[in-house]
């Protein structure tokens, strides 16, 4: 078959959360350039199963860039070398025949490894539970256009809302900081009137939760935005910081 490639994979294998892991080398033969990265791993896994080797465990779900499950640190980059995509949107044509590809799990204290490439991202869920929502009493459905929102705010809020909680920002950050992830939610809800009632409590609670989970401190390296599949920008971090100062200086919480 013309154009097909042979690749060498170095994959992080780790039996369970407690076991010591290591990089194992596998050959990926006859890989079509049109395959997605996950399909390539599927094929490798089939050959491993045939050999009686435990297949590589990895997270995946939608395979179209919207669920954020497919966490893989590929050749030194979250979701591989291309920008603005997830691993499932990465195609094998981005690699060269004969290339060696190193695949590792996200590395962060707050994202413990469950097995091989699968990490536990429930820290993100707990951060959202701490304040990344709006509380709405049930009742009749309100007309969606009853509250006027400036177009620019709606657009910026929509940009922030595209975050899929994939954790690439944490994986790419040298400090394993979740600041971009938090900022996307804080910014989205700060830009919309529906988010205003819980504004101060939200940002304080989410930042406290980030601390408890053991994520690092942002030092503005901007690697997160560069690796984010949704290209969430740094302006959201600046907005979250403003929200935080306003909350700290004005909220009635004195402890």
């Amino acid at each position: 078959m013309s154009g097909h490639m042979n690749l060498t994979l170095k994959v992080w294998r780790q039996k369970d959360a407690k076991a010591a892991g290591k990089l194992e080398t596998y050959e990926a033969k006859d890989v079509s350039p049109d395959m997605s990265f996950l399909e390539m791993i599927d094929v490798v896994n089939e050959s491993l199963i045939k050999k009686g080797v435990e297949p590589i465990a990895f997270d995946h779900d939608c395979r179209e860039g919207i669920c954020g499950a497919c966490s893989m640190y590929i050749n030194g980059h979250a979701h591989g070398p291309k920008q603005g995509i997830t691993t499932c949107q990465l195609h094998m044509r981005s690699f060269k025949d004969g290339e060696t590809i190193t695949i590792e799990p996200w590395r962060a204290k707050a994202f413990p490894i469950i097995k091989d490439l699968v990490v536990d991202r429930s820290a993100f869920d707990r951060i959202i539970q701490a304040g990344g929502y709006v509380s709405v009493n049930t009742g009749v459905t309100i007309d969606a256009n009853a509250i006027a929102i400036p177009k620019e705010h709606a657009d910026n809020a929509m940009d922030a809302a595209t975050c899929i909680g994939c954790g690439a920002c944490v994986a790419a950050c040298k400090n394993a900081s979740a600041t971009l992830f938090l900022s996307a939610k804080v910014s989205q809800l700060a830009l919309l009137p529906q988010g205003h009632p819980e504004r101060a409590a939200r940002v304080e609670a989410m930042i406290d939760q980030m601390e408890l989970e053991g994520f690092g401190n942002c030092t503005n390296t901007e690697a997160c935005s560069a690796e984010c599949p949704k290209e969430i920008g740094q302006e959201h971090i600046a907005r979250m910081n403003r929200e935080f100062y306003a909350a700290k200086l004005s909220s009635s919480k004195t402890k």
Binding site: K10, W12, L23, Y73, N75, G76, H77, P81, T102, E104, R107, A108, K109, A110, A172, K174, N175, A176, S177, G214, F215, G216, N217, T219, N220, T221, E222, A223, A226, E227
Partner: peptide, 24 residues
């Protein structure tokens, strides 16, 4: 604190393309 947040580093990392030397 930031060191603690990543106890195990990457075997293969390529941060030069996404952040400045100074910032790292």
């Amino acid at each position: 604190k930031n060191r603690q947040a990543r106890p195990t580093g990457y075997a293969y990392n390529d941060p030069g393309k996404t952040s400045s030397f100074s910032s790292r």
